[in-house]
């Protein structure tokens, strides 16, 4: 699936970025490299552009270009958060669902 198909509140992992070179390069330079976790935060009033949370930073891109970013959906938000915590020492604040467990 692609970022354009993500629902609000979903957590996703970037698999591949396609499209024009300048777009792909710019997005990756902003830290959206394959393997990065992305949260779909919201959508602008007319349905475009979309707002993402990447590495703790809010980024906005248009739907047309979000089609170029293929992502993998996390089966379940809480699980993905805890899975990441187990894998890496680098998770900042627990997402809430982890602490409650």
């Amino acid at each position: 699936m692609t970022l354009a198909h993500a629902r609000i509140g979903e957590y996703l992992t970037v698999e591949h970025i396609g499209g024009e070179r300048s777009f792909r390069r710019r997005l990756m330079e902003l830290g959206l490299v394959p393997g990065t976790q992305v949260e779909m935060v919201g959508v602008a009033p007319f349905g475009d552009p979309i707002e993402l949370l990447v590495r703790g930073c809010s980024l906005s891109i248009r739907r047309g270009e979000a089609l170029w970013v293929s992502v993998r959906r996390h089966r379940d938000v809480a699980a993905s958060c805890c899975e990441d915590k187990a894998l890496s020492v680098a998770v900042a604040t627990p997402c809430g669902s982890c602490t409650s467990r």
């Binding site: 990756m28 490299v33 590495r55 703790g56 020492v89 680098a90 998770v91 900042a92 604040t93």
Partner: peptide, 30 residues
């Protein structure tokens, strides 16, 4: 491009722990 950028980020992400920062910071300000 992918090789260059991904390698640089991988380098920085590996060092994140030692720099006492987090790959996915979520600060109060945010």
């Amino acid at each position: 491009d992918d090789e260059v950028i991904t390698t640089r980020y991988a380098f920085l992400d590996r060092q994140a722990g030692t720099m006492h920062t987090h790959v996915d910071q979520h600060l109060r300000k945010r």
